[in-house]
Amino acid sequence: MNGVDRLTVSVGETGHLVMTGGREFDAGGKADRFKQVALPHLDAVYTLARYLMRNRSDADDAVQECYLRAYRYFDTFRGGPVKPWLLAILRNVCHGAHSENTRLVYGEDAGDDEAAAGPLWREQAETPEQTAMRHADSATMRRLIRELPAEFREVIVLREINDLSYRDIAAAIDAPIGTVMSRLARARGLLREAWLASGDDE
């Protein structure tokens, strides 16, 4: 009887009485509500998936599974920020996929389609030289982030790319904020070393 005995009666926009409560009449509205709150985070979820999974199609699958799972759990979602909640589900999906098929990227070469993957945004009024330079830098940085061990890679993606607060990162990776801080410091140390080394190579 979990929650199904609740029945709310209210006057809807049309002036008709509206009854909600119980899964049976709520199904249509649930999907709409879910889409409204979850789909705006699709790019952020997809971005984390691309960094956690080996290639584009595995990332696609993981994101799809994440959204279907999130929809199933949506009844038990008790408010709060949606983005870390979705990212936590995605992370579980990716880890599950890893334990089954070892598809999670752990420092393997994942640059399958760097050139094809379009940037999400562009700075205005940049010269072709600047564009080329930035593309080179972006491709390098993506590769360097991919080469980080998974536990450091995910905090970098969540903080630097998906722009989550420490609190939201803690929620997404299910760890205390102290752990988030120490991992992020270590991750930046590793990334900086790799970045300097890549500069020496080029």
């Binding site: 789909l39 994101v63 199933r72 700075e123 790319i161």
Partner: peptide
Amino acid sequence: AIRPADLRYAAPDHLRRTIEGKLPASA
């Protein structure tokens, strides 16, 4: 070095469509 780089990925349209299509039917 990190912040100005294009490190995000935009979810492809087909993925968005697939998810939208599957959502209600999956319940």
